[in-house]
Design a protein around this nucleic acid. Structure first.
Lengths: 217, 217
DNA sequence: ACATGTGAACTGCTTCACAGCG
DNA sequence: CGCTGTGAAGCAGTTCACATGT
């Protein structure tokens, strides 16, 4: 074991690509857990994750020494470690803004709660929708947003509205002190450096495909 | 003008990050077009896109010289050039596999067709759904998939089914000769190198947020 | 003997800085 | 003079290769 056994002792900035791969490794480990495998090598994780064994070992090495030389990694131990690293050992409180198609799809997405993301409420300004529920989750009027956040202290906000109002909504979110935002609106948003904004942008991925199709030899 | 005036003459491999930024620039240019602005500087594009002016100029330089020194870029000229580069000057035929919540949301997403992505059909194996329509788009039985593709020649396939069956469906897609796939299933998929697979993975983005929240000083 | 953990080398993206041109 | 276009420098992420521990 090296000096990083305490996970909170991490100092260096971890690359986004590393974090993404950790998610992928964890997904495989959970498959292995179900199947009852006990150990796994960096080589095997690499093959499944579409990367190299050196990359797997390097990614893990930022956080500690989890393997046994000559043997590999214990599946349950590494799963636990990765869940801890990714902050999945606890519950996160989530609010969704926008009860349209995307918001509704998210509200009923099972994998959400499964991984510890607890949806407190969905917000919308359409009076037609306010008061209804989506899979048992209340649709509340957007005017209540700030006061609700103060009381319920969600850590994560999801923007699921069309592009036009998105920056304005983000500004409101930022003002409440929420530090993590998942954006489904197909626009580039700006937030202070201490607020993490991740985007899920289908339009951009499609254009990436269009580019790839147009530029093959 | 440099030697790359013919866009199809591009040789060097373009980074994915560059292509993403081109999408972003194009989105702003379209806003400028609407507002009737005639020229724009790399500095302005950078500010809006959350990057640097040098980055903007470098990104564009891979494809040609589109600006005027001392002046900036002509909004309509650069828009046209970017649309051409991204392959958005034509229509792409798209099929969606999976008529569940995501598939349905995609089928009725207006931005899809707006950018030239023409959805031919949605496929599902559930007999309850087959035969219905989503926003005028037919839901067809998955058993017809291969023969339909042969006839209608879609260029892009969208995977909108749960994780379990996704690799199998991708294998079927690949066998038909389709070379571009957008994957919404929350699993890592494997395809031959000549097939471009882009993933929209909300679960992974959420875990990235969880990590960010857990690792702030 | 075998697979990890990790400095060192490498690759490639980003930033710098300035020449070139309108 | 201002802003582009671009080699060169800088930096970050990936891959290599091997010493290390079991």
């Amino acid at each position: 074991m090296n000096e990083f056994t305490r996970l909170d002792a991490i100092v260096k900035r971890i690359a986004e690509s590393t974090v993404r791969r950790l998610s992928i490794y964890l997904r495989f480990l959970e498959e292995f857990e179900v199947r009852g495998s006990t150990t796994v090598s960096s080589e095997e994780l690499a093959r499944r994750g579409g990367t190299t064994s050196a990359q797997v070992r390097k990614d893990l090495s930022f956080f500690g020494s989890f393997g046994k030389r000559g043997l590999g990694y214990s599946v349950p131990e590494l799963s636990t470690a990765l869940r801890e690293i990714l902050g999945l050992g606890r519950e996160w409180r989530v609010v969704i803004i926008g009860a349209g198609k995307i918001g509704a799809a998210l509200a009923q997405y099972r994998g959400f709660r499964q991984r510890g993301f607890n949806i407190l409420a969905v917000y919308d300004s359409n009076p037609e929708k306010v008061g209804r529920t989506l899979e048992g989750i209340e649709i509340r009027d957007m005017s209540r947003f700030e006061s609700d956040v103060e009381r319920e202290r969600p850590e994560i906000a999801v923007i699921a509205i069309p592009g036009e109002g998105a920056q304005e909504v983000l500004d409101r979110i930022v003002r409440t002190g929420i530090k993590a935002v998942l954006n489904f609106a197909p626009v580039q948003l700006h937030a202070p450096a201490d607020v993490t904004v991740k985007a899920v942008n289908m339009a951009m991925e499609l254009e990436g495909l269009s580019f790839a199709l147009s530029n093959r030899d």
